[in-house]
Amino acid sequence: MQRIENYVTMDFLSRSNNEGFMRVAAAGFAAQLDPTLDELGDIKTAVSEAVTNAIVHAYPDSIGRIQVKMKLLESNTLEIVVRDWGRGIANIEQARQPLFTTGGEERSGMGFTIMESFMDVLRIKSTPNKGTTVVMRKRISQRTKR
C-alpha cells in the first residue's frame, strides 16, 4: 500500500456534458506533478475513456452516480479511480479486447486499449448489476526544476 500524499474525490451524475469537466479536473489535479504536455494529454484521454464508459455502459437507460477519486501517491505517481454503481461488465476479458464494443456504431471499442496504453497500470473490477471500478496509475517523469 503506497502512502497517499494528496487526494480529491468527485461525485457526479452520468451526464455526457460532465466528460469535459472531468478531463479538466484531472489535468488540474495532475498539474502538481509537473507533467509534460504529452503526459497531460495521456491522462485527459484515459479519464475521458473511463468516464465515458461509465456514462454509456454503466447507465445505458438511466442517469446514475459516478465517482472519480484522484490520488497523488509516492514516487510521483498519479492514481485515478473511476467507480460506478451501474450494470457492470459481464466479461471483462472480452471488454478489454481492441474493437470489442456493445455500444453500437458511435463507439469504437478502443476505450480500454487506450487506457491501457496511455497509463502504466489498468485494473478493472466489476460485478454485474452492482457496478464497476477502474483503477489507473501513471508515473510522471521527474523533470529538473527550473
Binding site: 469535459g20 475513456e49 465515458t52 469504437s108
Partner: peptide
C-alpha cells in the same frame, strides 16, 4: 481534444 469517439467517426 479527441478520445476514442473520434476513432468511430473516422472509421
Amino acid at each position: 481534444f479527441m478520445d476514442s469517439s473520434g476513432i468511430a467517426v473516422v472509421l
